Amino acid sequence: MEWTWQGVMPALTTKFTDSDELDTGLFVKNVRAQMAAGVSGLILGGTLGEASTLTEKEKDTLTLVALKEADGRIPVIVNIAEQRTSDAVQAARRAASNGAQGLMLLPPMRYKATSRETVAYFRAVADSTDLPILIYNNPVDYGIEVTPDMFEELLSTCPTVGAVKESTREISNVTRLRNRFGDRLRILTGVDTLGLESILMGADGWVAGLVCAYPAETVAVYALGKAGRIAEARSIYQWFLPLLELDISPQLVQNIKLAEVATGLGSEQVRPPRLPLEGAERERVMGIIRKAMAQRPELPQYKQYL
């Protein structure tokens, strides 16, 4: 399969039954909705996918189910987030053996690695596989920033590293990276509340969260923004923003799963230690979702711009 890092790539939630098993039927329903909306890839096992609570067997199952649904039409990308370098290498090899077509790679977990250690970690994984790699740069949540100098070193020594999930929350970084690397480094925004802004500044794609509940709206914002139909994109985005803000929260998984319930694309089930929202916070989130559903816009034709 030939593909590139671009378009909307959902960071999929993991669906569970009320007995804490994988709900593959509901997972498939969501994947089909994503593909029908026009996403360009599927990302499994990220923070939103509750990957830290999944067993290796469950990750294998989700990968194989997603690959069957994608059927070679779009890539399936597996997230790698490990503490030990050897575990990250093993996870990358396991994803490749299952048939994944790309990796999203975080810096080492828990230990705050130096720049030299972080680059060495990334290089060890890149050297272990031929899969294309998207580096997830999120210093806000994970404490390690992948700087332009570090990307320069990676791009010059690791041919499989080709993209960044830009989550520094500094919109000028899109331009800063483009100025330095041109098309050598594909840029995908990883912050929902900077989705349209990043696209208009030249980002190649959007690794999105609320897309799990609102796939068509997310892809429409991307496609219309890329096509220069800014007024149409902005109109959808203005409606969307209160929902997108649910993604920048420690409880983003619970928030987005509530939104998936509202659109019929998921359930509220999370895996402990996470628990469903309750009380005033649940009512606050539900208020945002109810208002959005009551005002949900009719979308213009957008797929022609993909």
Rank of each mutant, 00 (worst) to 15 (best):
P242W: 03
Q90W: 10
A231H: 15
D192R: 03
I133A: 05
V76K: 05
E217P: 00
A37T: 10
V221G: 07
V31Y: 07
R284L: 05
A70N: 01
V78A: 09
Q269K: 15
N30T: 00
T4G: 03
I77P: 04
L177D: 13
G202I: 04
V125Q: 13
W3T: 03
R123I: 02
Y302V: 04
L134H: 07
K15A: 08
E281N: 04
R180I: 00
A280Y: 10
L154P: 07
T24N: 08
L26E: 06
V125D: 14
L188N: 08
V261M: 14
Q304W: 04
L67D: 01
V125F: 11
A262P: 02
G46Y: 09
G7T: 02
A220V: 07
L155K: 03
K291T: 10
P75E: 10
I187C: 02
P148Y: 12
G41K: 05
E278L: 14
L210F: 00
N179R: 14
S172W: 12
D247M: 15
K59M: 06
T47V: 13
L188F: 08
Q83I: 04
S97A: 15
E153S: 11
Q34P: 07
I199A: 08
P148L: 13
K226H: 09
Y121I: 01
N79Q: 10
A95W: 12
E260R: 14
G49T: 14
E281L: 11
V164F: 02
M35V: 08
P250F: 06
L244Y: 12
L200E: 06
S52Q: 12
T147C: 09
L200F: 03
V253K: 01
S267N: 13
E298T: 01
T218Q: 00
P148C: 15
L22N: 05
D192K: 01
G190I: 01
P159D: 08
K112A: 06
V219Q: 10
K165W: 03
L154V: 05
P159S: 11
Y214F: 13
D87N: 02
D247W: 00
I256N: 00
S172A: 11
S249L: 11
V28Q: 05
K29V: 14
T17C: 10
R271W: 08
R180N: 15
K303Y: 13
